[in-house]
Design a protein around this nucleic acid. Sequence first.
DNA 1: CAGACATTTCAAGATATATTGAAAATAATG
DNA 2: CATTATTTTCAATATATCTTGAAATGTCTG
Lengths: 178, 178
Amino acid sequence: MTALERVRGELVVMWDRLGPLWGISPAAGRVHAWLLGHAEPQDAEQIAAGLESSRGAVSMACAELVDWGVILAEKPPGSRRVLYRPVTDVEQIIRRIVQTRKQREWDPLLAHLDGALESLEADRSAGAEEVRDRLDRIRGVVSAVDRLSERFLRGGALGTLGLKALVRAARSGRKRAP
Amino acid sequence: MTALERVRGELVVMWDRLGPLWGISPAAGRVHAWLLGHAEPQDAEQIAAGLESSRGAVSMACAELVDWGVILAEKPPGSRRVLYRPVTDVEQIIRRIVQTRKQREWDPLLAHLDGALESLEADRSAGAEEVRDRLDRIRGVVSAVDRLSERFLRGGALGTLGLKALVRAARSGRKRAP
DNA sequence: CAGACATTTCAAGATATATTGAAAATAATG
DNA sequence: CATTATTTTCAATATATCTTGAAATGTCTG
């Protein structure tokens, strides 16, 4: 077994657990890992065989990943197969994930909090006062993160957040023991 | 039904879905929401009754929340009951969540990536070259976020990230329609 | 536009996760 | 230190989620 093959297996295990952290399902995470581990784009058949999964499951996972914008589906002319290729521009991946999560989760949360605060304005009891205060503080942070992500999405580059310089610095200083 | 009671119910639904986003289970999220919705600290019995859950489930959830540092367990002298109170300092909550996730998830991820990159260094095939490049780019971002969180955890205040000013700004400008 | 090759869908079944409730453990009081 | 109020644990059970595979749908070529 080559080093590459071993790394591929580890990648699959990692992404299976980490996918949920940024909002994608474990199954889709495994497919993403598989694609990241292969230089050549793969078709659904190969992925299913490699992950010991079924054709249908891979189809679902790929649809999810295309939806998130972290992989691309390519139809080479002269063939009916669909080839999947991972997006390798990390900034683009982050952008898509931030964008998708913002509108799926963050914006609705903010709207709910605003609604809750509004209905509590009428209630002048001591208990309501305290709860309103807490929600207002939470809303402050949620709103701040919301604006931060907006700035990131508009600003065009990681640079706005100082991330770009950090990435540069981080790439040079590898290999701190586990 | 008062406005406060309605808001409590909505909070529970929100936190049930959002808990997983920052790493706690849906059940623990509901308990956290229940506590946030009540000005007075609550005992496990009250929580179980309020959420129509069982005594045991609440016990597990509270242990998880105390572990995360987002609620406090208080033993009032002269009684055997344990009262639970949510931490209301939002900065402290964020700090605990960032800290816990960093060491549970982020640090191991970084170590794995370093290990994978190291074993790929030997493999000089074209495929390995491409995969190594991708992993290196990913490692750059993971490492950058890691350093960012370290800076936040040490720096003592949200201020370091510019979040503090954002929170101030956000709190004044409420009520953009849903 | 028919035939063949591929993909997507979806209901049934398999698997994993969460919940319950009663028994064991713990802590406080007289 | 026995009693009682309370919490924690954990095996059984209920619930939700993921996977499968066959049928339906789509799409490219001659």
